[in-house]
C-alpha cells in the first residue's frame, strides 16, 4: 500500500536517488577541502554544496515538496529572513582582522 504522499514524493526510488546525491555532494565537499584555493573561495564553494544538500534533504527526505505550497513558502520565507538578518555582523569581523581601510 502506498499513500498519496509517497506517490507525490516519488516513493523509495526517489529517496534512494536523493540519498546517493547527498552522499556524492558530501564527497564533493571533501574534495574541495583538498583543493589549493583561497580560504574564502573554499568557504563559498562548500557553503553552496551544503545548501544544495540541505535543500534536497528538506524537499525530499522531509517531504516539504509534498506539503501545501503555502506552507512551504511561509516556513521558507520566515527561516531565510531570520538567517539573513544574522549576517549583519560580518563587516565587523573583517574590521577586527584587517582594520578599517578608510581610516588610513
Amino acid at each position: 500500500m502506498t499513500t498519496a504522499e509517497d506517490h507525490k514524493s516519488g516513493g523509495i526510488g526517489s529517496g534512494l536517488v536523493v540519498y546517493l546525491c547527498i552522499l556524492a555532494l558530501a564527497a564533493i565537499q571533501f574534495v574541495i577541502a583538498y583543493q589549493n584555493i583561497d580560504g574564502s573561495q573554499m568557504f563559498v564553494r562548500m557553503l553552496i554544496v551544503a545548501l544544495v544538500e540541505a535543500g534536497l534533504a528538506l524537499l525530499f527526505f522531509m517531504h516539504l515538496w509534498s506539503e501545501k505550497r503555502a506552507f512551504m513558502w511561509s516556513a521558507g520565507i520566515i527561516t531565510v529572513f531570520v538567517l539573513l538578518v544574522m549576517q549583519f555582523g560580518w563587516t565587523d569581523s573583517f574590521r577586527i582582522s584587517g582594520g578599517v581601510p578608510w581610516a588610513k
Binding site: I22, I32, A33, G39, F43, M46
Partner: peptide, 14 residues
C-alpha cells in the same frame, strides 16, 4: 542530519 552538512565544512574541513 541536515545540520551536520553545515557543521562538517565549517568546523572540520576548513
Amino acid at each position: 542530519d541536515m545540520v551536520w552538512m553545515f557543521v562538517v565544512p565549517m568546523v572540520y574541513l576548513l
